[in-house]
């Protein structure tokens, strides 16, 4: 990947890379609370069926994953585990924060044990608001992320360029 990470890949190759990354997002589910059930409905529910978008929700390990979905309340006890698994994922990696709790603490904004947003631990690419968001909202988040991947310069992740996070809705 030296060619890509140095940013010297020719444009058609970048396009091809982005295209293939976009439609093979291996997704690590990090289901924590109520949102996990809505995520489960989006993944396993016959009505929503997220796999038609090229999202593969069952990687055996974070080392195979491109995308991590934090869905639910992040507590201070859980935070180190999330950070550790996120660090195991290979670059380029994306984070979807699903639900109010993962975005900002949600209804537990004043609790003594809840982390006020997963963005305090790991950088977030897409925020999906809602308590819990409907599966449609989650799928919208994935579609927006795919659009961003398509328009992205694959090397910018290695150059440390950060973009404004996407907010669904």
């Amino acid at each position: 990947m030296g060619l890509v990470s140095s940013g010297k890949a020719p444009k058609p190759l970048q396009h091809l890379l982005n295209y293939s990354r976009k439609y093979s997002l291996w997704m690590l589910q990090w289901g924590l609370a109520c949102c996990a059930i809505e995520m489960g409905a989006a993944l396993a529910g016959p009505r929503y069926d997220v796999m038609r978008l090229g999202v593969i929700p069952f990687p055996a390990s974070p080392r195979q994953a491109d995308l991590i979905v934090i869905s639910g309340t992040v507590t201070d006890k859980m935070a180190p585990a999330i950070k550790r698994l996120y660090e195991q994922m290979p670059d380029p990696k994306y984070v979807i924060s699903m639900g109010s709790c993962a975005n900002c603490g949600g209804p537990y904004w004043d609790s003594y044990s809840v982390t006020k947003g997963v963005d305090q631990i790991i950088p977030v690419d897409v925020y999906v608001p809602g308590c819990p968001p409907r599966p449609e909202a989650f799928i919208q988040g994935i579609v927006l992320l795919q659009q961003r991947i398509m328009s992205e310069d694959p090397a910018e992740r290695w150059r440390g360029v950060t973009r404004e996070p996407i907010v669904v809705g």
Binding site: K77, G105, Y112, S113
Partner: peptide
């Protein structure tokens, strides 16, 4: 049981403050 083992204090005592409420 619930909290990380380095947690200090007893949260359900009335004099345990919810810091988030004081700063925000």
């Amino acid at each position: 049981l619930y909290l990380p083992s380095e947690f200090e204090g007893h949260p359900l005592r009335k004099d345990y403050p919810l810091l988030a409420r004081e700063v925000k």
